Amino acid sequence: MTKISLIGAGGKMGVRLSDNFLKNPQYEVTYVEIAQVGIDKLAERGIKATETNDSVQEADVVILAVPDVAIGAISEVLIPLMKAGAVVLTLDPAAPLDGKIAHREDLGYVIAHPCHPSIFNWEPTEAAFRDFYGGISAKQSIVVALMAGSEAHYQLGEKIAQDMYAPIDQTYRITLEQMAILEPAMVETLAQTCMEVVKEGYDRVVGLGVPEAAARDFVLGHLRIQIAVLFKEVNGTFSDAAYKISKRAKPILFKENWQKIFELSDIREQVRDITEK
């Protein structure tokens, strides 16, 4: 039986992972949490949390489900305790790419991150359709990277990632650098920022007197078809007028050379902003 020490088990990500580990009796999981709110959340699930790090010494896998700003200091305490040959499993590429994770040559280091269910994901029930984060009932794909260690380390980390993020559609093996190109660069620096601007525009439209329900349905409906066209979910195009107006708008909304956010030097600056307090 694989022994897992889940650090931060009562946090935002930790709780989601804990829920899925309850469905996987093949793992012997110790749920480590020091915050009372997290301990209470685990207790609601029938999980008795521990505030000590004793389980780290015997664990085959230590999962660091803790905030990016804290993961460096926490790893400095925990990784020296780990047994040789064990796996350090992190959930985000920022701290590993920024060199914030304590390193030992006799350990494996795997990073696994969920893609979250696609907006075009078909689910048979309303509840599954509304599992926006994934890990409950909606299928999602995941990306997994081996930062250091052996192929056996990777295979163990991938298997655990598939179980803790289940149900899984596809598993993509990529590099640490490629994962950082995806997040933060693509989905946070670019996509989330653009969506925040769209939301600001929506708020402005409502402030100008457009009925909120009409504005919401209008923008969300158009976003769906726009994404479907751009990502080839449908065999269609935009109108000539729409292409003309987007061509006019792009230099107004975006600085020249904005694509530098995908250069590794810029990505390293992005992850440094994430990992530093």
Rank of each mutant, 00 (worst) to 15 (best):
I225K: 00
Q36A: 12
A35N: 02
R130S: 15
E276C: 12
Y202V: 08
L253W: 04
A228V: 06
R248Q: 09
L42Q: 10
G149Q: 04
A49N: 03
A35I: 09
K247Y: 11
I71D: 02
G207P: 01
V210E: 04
A166V: 13
G221T: 13
R272V: 15
A152K: 14
E263K: 00
I63S: 02
M195R: 05
I181Y: 05
Q140T: 14
Y31R: 06
R16V: 05
H153S: 05
D266Q: 14
S141A: 11
T275V: 15
V210C: 11
M13H: 00
S118C: 13
L107G: 06
S137T: 15
T193L: 11
N121L: 15
A86V: 12
L146Y: 06
A9S: 15
D98W: 01
L176K: 02
R272E: 15
Q140P: 04
V143C: 04
G99F: 04
L230M: 09
T275R: 00
I119N: 06
G38C: 12
K277V: 15
V110T: 03
I267E: 01
N257L: 05
W122C: 04
L64R: 00
A214I: 15
P117T: 09
V77R: 08
K48Y: 06
A59L: 10
A166C: 13
G8C: 10
I252Y: 06
V69A: 11
K41Q: 12
A95K: 04
G221S: 11
D273E: 13
M179L: 13
R45E: 15
L156G: 01
F132K: 07
A95M: 05
R224K: 07
Q170P: 03
Y133F: 09
I39L: 13
Q36K: 12
K159P: 02
G236N: 11
I245N: 05
L156C: 04
T125N: 08
E58W: 07
K232R: 14
I4C: 01
P80H: 12
Q226A: 15
I181F: 08
V66W: 00
T193D: 07
Q192M: 06
V271R: 01
L42A: 12
L17H: 07
D92N: 08
I47N: 02
E123G: 03
Y31L: 14
V29M: 09
L220V: 15
V61K: 00
A191C: 11
Q26C: 09
T171Y: 07
P67K: 03
L182H: 00
E33T: 08
E200V: 09
A127F: 14
Y133N: 08
G149E: 05
F254G: 07
I142Q: 00
V198S: 01
P96C: 11
M82I: 13
A95H: 01
K100Q: 11
G99Q: 04
D273F: 10
A94G: 07
A185M: 03
E58A: 10
L42F: 10
Q270D: 11
T50W: 01
G221K: 05
I274Q: 00
L17I: 15
E263H: 02
A84S: 12
D68K: 04
Y154G: 02
P80C: 14
